[in-house]
Computed example of a mutant assay.
Amino acid sequence: MPRHQTHIAEDLRPGRGAASRDAGRFERFLREDVHDGWDIAETPRIERTEVAEERPRSVINYTRSPDLPFDRTINPYRGCEHGCIYCFARPTHAYLGLSPGLDFETRLIARPDAPATLAHELRKASYRPATIAIGTNTDPYQPIEKTRGIMRGLLEVLRDHRHPVAIVTKGTLIERDIDILSEMAAQGLARVGISVTTLDPVLSRRMEPRVPAPARRLATIARLTEAGIPVRLMASPMVPALTDPELEAILEAGRDAGADAASWIMLRLPREVAPLWQDWLETHYPDAASRVMARLREMHGGAVYSSKWHTRMRGEGPYAQIVAQRFALATRRLGLDHPTAPLRTDLFRVPPRAGDQLALF
């Protein structure tokens, strides 16, 4: 169904990143609000979070991207209430007939049966274990996880199967699951990546409106590592001329909090993300907008983004090389450049269920 193409007043979207609900690229028609001539007052509608449910037949997504160190992922939720304006996952909402703008942040889809579905998939005789990545698309520890508990259910299944998992999040709610993660980490089955984009709380609140503050995320790194859970500091995304001056400071703060490794990715603006980002940039940082966009075009052959394998994550050219060199020098100085141990797959087992016949030998 066609979506509204309109700008939403700021006071009607508190704590949201996107300012519009523009139609996705698959919509054939646009619908715009116009004055009908009647002077009838209408009550403004504040954007609230709505959650629908989905029950897919499988939850493990397989990928063959040469840019990624894993071949399978799980997404407990579609959409993300964190509202990060730069989120490269926003265009996926267009496949649902929803806006990659405000709909991505406010019209979420939960998968309550995901743990049971995962257990069913892991029990198949044809299944071969390899690290499952969670949080690579939308954050599994976004606010609705507090009441839904889908991610915790998935971890319980993975723990029971002794299956390796790598988690990426900005959400401090992960501390709730330290009991499971520490048990898995002790067996070499779990690793966490915490994303810190900036140390500036004002910039963070504007760019990632419902994400815990940078200092709070650093505290989460400390709590996880104290529990024996290995953590990677992810300085991602780096925004040219806006956050990249902080690269070394972010890495040092992560090291001081206990991170044992680090990584970085340059800002990516695929499809509908580009206009959303540019609108946000012109609104909040107009003086820096031209520099930011010029740097991005410089790294992508004149375009704001290129999806080429091997270069889409970090760009090309002198500027991208300088950032990469700065990262290499800083991680070497801070001791964050050592390779991390691979997660174990040899412990995988299918736990017996009630009623299963036990082996005699």
Results as ranks from 00 to 15, higher is better:
P115Y: 02
I132E: 05
D177R: 05
L173A: 08
R176T: 12
P143S: 02
G171H: 03
I132H: 06
R162M: 04
R148P: 03
H161F: 15
D139T: 07
Y141A: 06
P129M: 11
H163C: 05
S126A: 14
R123S: 06
K124N: 10
I134Q: 03
E156T: 07
L108S: 03
D179V: 08
I150G: 04
A130Q: 08
R111P: 00
V157Q: 14
H120C: 09
I167F: 04
Q142S: 06
P164M: 12
L154W: 07
V157D: 13
L154M: 06
N137Q: 14
S126K: 14
A119R: 14
A116E: 13
Y127D: 09
Q142G: 05
N137K: 13
L155V: 02
I132N: 04
T136Q: 13
L155C: 00
T106F: 14
L118Y: 09
A166Q: 07
M151Y: 01
V165H: 13
L158A: 00
T117Q: 09
Y141N: 05
T117K: 05
T138K: 03
F104R: 11
I167D: 11
I134W: 06
I150A: 10
P143M: 03
R123V: 02
A130F: 05
E105D: 08
A125Q: 15
E175M: 07
T136K: 10
I178Y: 05
E145G: 02
H120T: 14
G171Y: 09
A116K: 12
A125T: 14
R152W: 13
D139F: 05
E175P: 01
I178R: 02
G153R: 00
D103T: 03
L118G: 09
R111E: 05
H163K: 02
T106L: 15
E145F: 04
H120F: 09
I178F: 02
E145C: 00
L154H: 05
I132L: 08
A110S: 07
I134E: 10
H163Y: 10
S126M: 06
T117C: 04
K146N: 15
K146E: 15
I109G: 06
E156K: 08
I174V: 14
D139N: 04
T138W: 09
R111L: 01
L122E: 00
I178V: 11
A110T: 06
G135F: 08
K170M: 08
L155H: 01
A130S: 14
K124T: 12
T131Y: 07
R176Q: 10
L122Q: 01
K124R: 15
M151D: 04
A119D: 13
P115Q: 00
T131S: 03
R128A: 09
D103S: 12
L108Y: 00
L158V: 03
P115L: 00
S126T: 15
G149E: 09
E121C: 01
H163F: 10
G135L: 03
I178T: 09
I174L: 12
A133G: 12
P143Y: 05
H120W: 10
L118P: 11
G149R: 13
V168N: 01
A116T: 11
V157K: 13
H161Y: 15
L155G: 00
F104N: 14
I134C: 11
G153Y: 01
K124M: 12
R176L: 05
T172L: 01
L158C: 01
P164K: 13
D139P: 07
R162V: 01
D139G: 04
N137V: 15
I178W: 06
R123T: 06
K170N: 04
T131N: 03
E145L: 02
M151I: 00
